[in-house]
Amino acid sequence: MPDDKDIRPFRLDTPDETLADLRRRIADTRWPTRELVSDRSQGVQLATVQELARYWSTEYDWRACETKLNALPQYTTVIDGVEIHFIHVRSRHEDALPLIMTHGWPGSVVELLGVIGPLTDPTAHGGASEDAFHLVLPSLPGYGFSGEPTELGWDSRRMAGAWAKLMDRLGYPRYVAQGGDVGASVTDAMGRQAPEGLLGIHVNLLAGAIGIKDQLPAESEQERTAHDRLNTFMTDGFGYFLEQSTRPQTIGYSLLDSPVGLAAWMLDHDTDSYYKISRAFVDGEPAGNLTRDSIVDNITLYWLTGTGASSARWYWESGRARAAASAAGQTPPPVSVPVGFTTFPGEIWAAPRSWAETVYPSLTYFNEVDKGGHFAAWEEPEVFATEVRAAFRPLRTS
Score class of each variant (00 low, 15 high):
residue 47 A to I: 13
residue 124 A to D: 14
residue 282 V to N: 00
residue 300 T to D: 07
residue 33 T to K: 15
residue 134 H to S: 07
residue 292 R to Q: 10
residue 182 V to R: 11
residue 203 V to P: 00
residue 74 Q to W: 05
residue 381 P to F: 01
residue 313 R to P: 01
residue 285 E to P: 14
residue 270 D to W: 11
residue 279 R to D: 07
residue 122 P to Q: 02
residue 71 A to D: 14
residue 237 G to L: 04
residue 122 P to W: 01
residue 379 E to N: 06
residue 48 T to C: 07
residue 96 A to P: 02
residue 234 M to D: 04
residue 20 A to Q: 12
residue 365 Y to G: 09
residue 291 T to N: 00
residue 135 L to D: 01
residue 285 E to H: 13
residue 347 E to S: 08
residue 277 I to G: 07
residue 236 D to T: 14
residue 206 L to A: 05
residue 303 W to V: 08
residue 293 D to F: 07
residue 58 T to N: 12
residue 332 P to E: 11
residue 277 I to Q: 12
residue 93 H to D: 11
residue 358 T to V: 06
residue 22 L to G: 06
residue 243 E to K: 12
residue 390 A to L: 07
residue 126 G to F: 05
residue 177 A to T: 09
residue 75 Y to W: 10
residue 288 G to Y: 01
residue 388 V to L: 04
residue 83 E to D: 09
residue 119 L to S: 02
residue 209 A to D: 04
residue 251 I to L: 10
residue 335 V to I: 03
residue 177 A to M: 11
residue 62 W to D: 03
residue 388 V to W: 00
residue 264 A to D: 03
residue 182 V to D: 13
residue 359 V to I: 12
residue 56 W to R: 02
residue 279 R to I: 05
residue 243 E to Y: 13
residue 60 Y to Q: 09
residue 58 T to H: 11
residue 7 I to S: 08
residue 176 V to T: 06
residue 272 D to R: 04
residue 154 W to S: 03
residue 72 L to M: 11
residue 342 T to A: 04
residue 316 W to I: 10
residue 206 L to R: 03
residue 197 G to T: 01
residue 203 V to Y: 00
residue 115 V to W: 01
residue 141 P to V: 07
residue 357 E to I: 02
residue 229 R to M: 15
residue 335 V to N: 00
residue 268 D to F: 05
residue 394 P to N: 08
residue 153 G to T: 08
residue 388 V to K: 00
residue 290 L to Y: 06
residue 395 L to R: 02
residue 299 I to V: 15
residue 376 A to F: 03
residue 136 V to G: 11
residue 346 G to L: 01
residue 126 G to W: 05
residue 289 N to V: 12
residue 120 T to A: 08
residue 279 R to Y: 04
residue 189 A to T: 05
residue 93 H to C: 12
residue 23 R to W: 06
residue 45 Q to R: 15
residue 322 R to H: 14
residue 230 L to I: 09
residue 347 E to Y: 03
residue 395 L to N: 05
residue 306 G to Y: 10
residue 161 G to E: 02
residue 229 R to K: 15
residue 308 G to E: 05
residue 355 W to S: 00
residue 133 F to M: 04
residue 238 F to M: 13
residue 371 K to G: 14
residue 185 S to N: 14
residue 212 I to R: 14
residue 375 F to N: 01
residue 16 D to P: 05
residue 335 V to Q: 00
residue 320 R to D: 09
residue 265 W to R: 06
residue 396 R to L: 11
residue 108 S to V: 02
residue 160 A to Y: 04
residue 86 F to W: 07
residue 341 F to Q: 03
residue 32 P to L: 08
residue 50 Q to A: 11
residue 397 T to S: 12
residue 389 R to N: 05
residue 312 A to I: 09
residue 247 R to W: 10
residue 331 T to I: 14
residue 363 L to T: 06
residue 126 G to N: 09
residue 146 S to H: 03
residue 315 Y to D: 07
residue 36 L to N: 15
residue 171 G to K: 09
residue 71 A to T: 07
residue 336 S to N: 11
residue 38 S to Y: 15
residue 280 A to T: 04
residue 120 T to D: 01
residue 238 F to Y: 14
residue 154 W to N: 04
residue 8 R to T: 10
residue 3 D to S: 13
residue 6 D to M: 13
residue 273 S to T: 13
residue 377 A to R: 00
residue 283 D to L: 13
residue 105 W to N: 06
residue 293 D to Q: 11
residue 240 Y to S: 10
residue 349 W to V: 10
residue 306 G to C: 09
residue 67 T to D: 12
residue 22 L to Q: 07
residue 22 L to K: 07
residue 253 Y to V: 02
residue 311 S to L: 03
residue 178 Q to M: 08
residue 328 A to C: 12
